[in-house]
Amino acid sequence: MEQRLANTLNMTVNEKKFIESALLSDLRVDGRRPFDYRKLSIIFGREDGSSEIQLGQTRVMGFVTGQLVQPYRDRPNEGTLAIYTEFSPMADPSFESGRPGESAIELGRIVDRGLRESRAVDTESLCVISGKLVWAIRIDLHIIDNGGNLVDASNIAALAALSTFRRSECTIGGEDGQEVIVHPPEVREPLPLIIHHLPVAVTFGFIGKENIVVIDPTQHEEGVMGGSMTATLNTNGEVCAIQKAGGEGVLQSVIMQCLRIASVKAADITSKIKIAVSLFYFF
């Protein structure tokens, strides 16, 4: 087993001390306040189901594709949703091509938990013939540039891509009602996925001994922070997933406060995504 540090930015002691002491007066290095997000821009590609997110310096691209496959044996009437992440070495020198490292897997699992376990995408409507043919939706996330907080950016990329993805319509016909005809998009308008809610991930970093909390840490702040927590929430006031994998201990009250802040930020990001999607369709 290899150990891969997500951040091999070899930071000098000076840099670390600077960040910590600036935070003591509620200042962050890039001028934000502790609970401010960086600028978020959502652009869609030409094809349905592709998106490019830029969160400050972090850039992530998301692609959604669909395929007809056999369903799992114990879920014969549900489609499947799978998330694949690609940490390209272009983004950060510490990423190596080939097998995904630990942080890549962790990111994939956080996004996966947020989307799949919370039933954001309706998988039952992806069934074509129960027990034989269902749609398998595959989300590919490519990290183009690592400027810190990959989790949030990837999550937004996945959500944006899912909102604009269209799958071809298929009808069942044939002799015994078992043949499936897939209609190309020129003949029949393709259908959107049914998305019940948008689970948005909000990452907090805990820096220093006094456990100062910052939202949306940049790469430098990630190098300093003692622990991080990602909370995935939706606008219905429900918590979809939480991931705090070790690191500095924090008090329960701090966690609840973070969740409350996260729900406000989540509403904000959800509305940004929805506006971007509706603009995409307007044109």
Partner: peptide, 8 residues
Amino acid sequence: PSGHYVRT
């Protein structure tokens, strides 16, 4: 008969 849900 048995079937499956398509959409709402």
